[in-house]
Design a protein around this nucleic acid. Structure first.
Lengths: 232, 232
DNA sequence: TAGTTGTATACTGTATACAGTATACAAAAA
DNA sequence: TTTTTGTATACTGTATACAGTATACAACTA
């Protein structure tokens, strides 16, 4: 075989499939926070044995999306005010580090790529496609974290990010006033800091944005709790 | 039962036992970096089935102590220069955050506790008990990270710390000039910053120390590699 | 001899089966 | 009626068994 005819086949374990589906269901909110995840049920639904389900649950536990209680099973994480503050503050701290590592390495094609992402975000807002907006929002930050070229930083960021996504989805479903325009506006400001090769401004912005979103999520949490106690 | 007669029994799964033992063996260097971890062998040695061993290996993978290759198994992590830089830089970044969160909360009894740890370190050096010194070194930083009262930060720190310990053990076994005195000296300087309620100085010190230790470990790595190529 | 293919072996990945534990609820006793 | 105890049930934790895959090496072919 002297030329590359076929694409590489990725080792495709069931576990990755299971993991991916469950993570999606939890992050998107299809499974409610606090819900009990029954291994046998999940295994039956997906037509696999409990073992790969268990192993996926382990990974989700490490990612912080579920909590495991010995001999009781797995439960989707519920966020307290402290949890929300933790998630966003740690994410902000990790992104700050990412800016310090990434900005010196960034060239014009990186700036262009980020510019494109912002434009796509504006388009998504015009289309009222907020799922797409959330994805593009994520890609903007992800791009910078990848550019930092720091695998451990990236891994830690992904873990916090999954929980952020979960909270942002929760906010989107429950908060009346949703202001999608803030996403590209914030990103424009960050991009400017990148173009000026000034990590410190990007870092200050990150903490500012983080603070704001954290506040938003806390309000959402309170309104959900208020609605729940009112219903009872 | 009107009074507390018996201590609570912690749910004691085999897995925790297995996890603890394997982690210790890897961090301490009893198992060489790069070594293949055979599930069946380990299960046999510990007289358990492969399942709890597998689950422990998953956790070690998430902690970054081992690498899993699909259908090939688990291998103890080997550190490249990039890995070493990553581990120490991320740890420094996390500790910086810990200082910002912890220092405002610290009182005289915290300072006293840290002072005691430093004294114990000096005693350990006099006793030439370097295992104990490593433990006390760890406790100093751990105390601050716990005081930050940020569970996600603490979790991320523990993950980096396990790899740091592994590298420091490697250095201890291979590096000729070992200067244990630096540990309490550095800690004295950090403690002073804490007493002065000045996180920024503590942060600057952390990066300085991190840089130094990182350099040391990289040198160790090179000397090990040089010894290996010479042997071949 | 060099390169390819077949085959054995040993390992991981998954399925099934059973043991251990938590929980809810009914029955019994105070 | 309230508290305690027994019991059933359903779940997780673990063991065993087997299927799928990677690797090494022998046999074969050009």
């Amino acid at each position: 075989m002297d030329s590359q005819l076929f694409m590489k086949i990725e080792p495709h374990s069931m576990e990755n499939e299971i993991l991916y589906r469950m993570r999606e269901a939890i992050v998107s909110g299809k499974i409610e926070p606090g819900a009990h995840l029954n291994e046998t049920d999940i295994a039956k639904q997906m037509a696999v044995s409990r073992i790969p389900v268990r192993e996926s649950l382990r990974k989700l536990e490490q990612e912080g999306l579920i909590v495991r209680l010995p001999n009781k099973g797995c439960f989707v994480i519920t966020f307290s005010e402290q949890d929300i503050n933790e998630v966003f503050s740690l994410r902000a701290s990790l992104e700050s580090m990412a800016y310090q590592w990434a900005i010196p390495k960034m060239g014009t094609q990186d700036v262009q790529k980020l510019k494109d992402l912002i434009e796509q975000q504006e388009q998504a807002i015009r289309n009222e496609d907020y799922d797409e907006l959330a994805r593009l929002d994520m890609h903007f930050h992800e791009y910078i974290c990848i550019k930092a070229n720091h695998s451990r930083l990236l891994k830690a960021w992904y873990e916090q990010h999954a929980q952020c996504q979960m909270l942002l989805n929760l906010r989107f479903r429950h908060l009346a006033e949703y202001t999608p325009e803030t996403v590209p506006i914030d990103h424009h400001r960050i991009l400017k800091a990148i173009e000026n090769n000034d990590p410190q401004i990007a870092i200050d912005l990150t903490y500012e944005i983080s603070e704001r979103v954290s506040k938003d999520c806390n309000e959402t949490l309170k309104s959900i709790q208020a609605a729940r106690t009112a219903a009872q």
